[in-house]
Design a binder for these strands. Sequence first.
DNA 1: CTACTTATATAATCTTGTTATATAAGTAGC
DNA 2: GCTACTTATATAACAAGATTATATAAGTAG
Lengths: 399, 399
Amino acid sequence: MALESSGARPDLLRRLNRERVVDVIRHEGAMTRAALGRAAGVSYPTVLKVVAELMEEGLLEEGGIVQPSMGRPGKAVAMASSGSRVASVVLGVEECTVAEARLDGTLVPGMEFKFAPPASYEALLEKISEALDFFSSDRNPHRLLGIGVALPGVIDRDEGRVIVSPNLPWLNDKALASDIETRFGLPTTLVRAMHAHYLAAADYGDGRGVEDFIVINFAGGIGMGACAGGRFIDGGGGMSGELGHLSIVPEGGKRCGCGHRGCLETVASDRAVVDAANERTGRMMSIEEIIESVRAGDLEIDDVLERAADTLGAGVATAINVLNPSRVLLFGHFMAARDDLFDRFVAEARNRALSPVAAKVEFLPPSRESHHAQQIGAAAAVIEVLVAGKAPKDLAVAV
Amino acid sequence: MALESSGARPDLLRRLNRERVVDVIRHEGAMTRAALGRAAGVSYPTVLKVVAELMEEGLLEEGGIVQPSMGRPGKAVAMASSGSRVASVVLGVEECTVAEARLDGTLVPGMEFKFAPPASYEALLEKISEALDFFSSDRNPHRLLGIGVALPGVIDRDEGRVIVSPNLPWLNDKALASDIETRFGLPTTLVRAMHAHYLAAADYGDGRGVEDFIVINFAGGIGMGACAGGRFIDGGGGMSGELGHLSIVPEGGKRCGCGHRGCLETVASDRAVVDAANERTGRMMSIEEIIESVRAGDLEIDDVLERAADTLGAGVATAINVLNPSRVLLFGHFMAARDDLFDRFVAEARNRALSPVAAKVEFLPPSRESHHAQQIGAAAAVIEVLVAGKAPKDLAVAV
DNA sequence: CTACTTATATAATCTTGTTATATAAGTAGC
DNA sequence: GCTACTTATATAACAAGATTATATAAGTAG
């Protein structure tokens, strides 16, 4: 199919085996080279070379000694957590954050630089510059290997260009990745917000080892990132996963930002719950405040919450019928308002989906660390590129 | 992700380049080895070896002489169309067909063997045996390279086993592929019905060269086969594409075979149109007869047809929002009843989908040859395996 | 202290690809 | 008709990467 790409050269093998080794370590944790070879299905000499390369590049580190129940002890190989880091930039409509992440997918405490969305492109680059200066003031010596950037909108991933970002219009048509690369001299990768969410799950979260899963993010609007056969579904125009705009509310319903009525996200998102609650109380509470008030018994919006959970279940059932994932991961807040909302959601999703398809789906509730998912995903984006190495680039291969 | 698979070995390259060369020929037609190398992005010596292998195996043939406007003439290389064939078995609820296909995706006229669904597994193997005997009576000498089988139900593709086929229950849990292989001594591949539809489009039809497309089949129920990033979306349980059971009819609606009410296929499929028309007339007409009557002005079911087209548009809009395909292919009949139904469908699909996503989608109307899509797809299934060659099997790679 | 187990290291070999070089067989211009 | 140019075909030399086979190191168990 991919007729534009070029043929398979021998160095493709090295790239695939690098990705494979890193996948195994991310999924199963630090281990000796010998164990890595067995787990990855690769011979020892190959592991040796691959690990040597990746250590040289700062992606892997040697950790402690592993003592097997019998035999010679070995040195554990792990994702780099002290010698090198990447910068992770998340551009949001309300807030932008530049943070430092280790290669094991953890954020470095304190190394976080927040700012309001700047008014211009030049101002953004300036803010990133400040953040990098801030990071380099850290007395712990480390290499900064790259910069990952997540943003809302449509991007050309290969070119690292923003095609259109409706809410941050000064980004439109900017070659952000190459501009950052030339300014800071670091490999830079762009991803759209839901892709970052997906990467956080696929590389460092509950999507590891799962070939087919979906991530639903209902904080704000409703977006989905889907993994099919181990690969992210990006869509022909890089706009897959627009679950929020399924027409799901029968006849009428609130008007959505997209121009239609009855979209899923007008009912089943955190934003929808906030709007409905504030309309009722006349106050301006955040979703966190609403959750607290409901749990304290100070706010009664059972109908809103139940409708949100049920409707989200119906919407996700649609995605399940289409994609048949093995696992469904959730990000968002409103379900924390009552203990039974997640179960309601699951029941409705299972009921609405075709039963043999729904039967084998595993649902995971929103986790507390989900807060940083996008931040970790932005880091994961550039880490993936670093792991791939000097890619043939025009060849589409997945593992 | 795919942690079960093994590492990348050098022979993976050959497999990828074989697939690549065949893809180019299927998409762009017969050409010289030199042109093939340029189109595939592969060096001439590699093309030479790959083509020699594939010709040896009977997958490619040398055709006529190609005379460029200047320079030495070359021999065109094409998919084999005379020296070798594959058998294509389509098991249906109403009818089973064994046919012979050339490797260029065309069916051999006259080489078609139809029979009613047998009552037992052993009877099926017997019927296939009869069909193969029938084919070998052809006086044109050719090699039969393999057997592709398409069937309704869920299968384990790697093992060639039927997991469950609700409508052909005597197939349940049968290792059909290996049983056929041992009985007839030919490589055999199993695919589910929608996967066959997908393969016909992806390898020999309007999906060629398109990385992201969906095939909608609304003859009978409603199924979808989706291609994302050049690969079929099979789903974790091999049950993706269940578009027919989206709950789309508001409140109530007819009861569906799946147990729910208001499923898309109770309104927007050929079967739904047939049921509605026959209920109204009290007769038992087929979809073809209904189409003819409507076009002749003898039958008035405009409301049924319009509702079917509109509702199908709404359902496909859902798939578009989720997958963001570049192209939508249709298979089915009822739209032929009136000239404007396809346009109605497209308008509704575009309107219901998120507009920037819908804007770039190309819709193709059902084509007349679609009749044989599944038959060609079953052939394509085994051809893909033959092209891949003695696969490392446990490595998931796409081109 | 010996046998066994596990980790690590390297040499020899295999598969596959590419670039460089040569040859073959046409058209175009003089 | 001859030469220059173009395109196709063929092969030799070399490079990248992986595997198997072999050796060595460093533990535990008896």
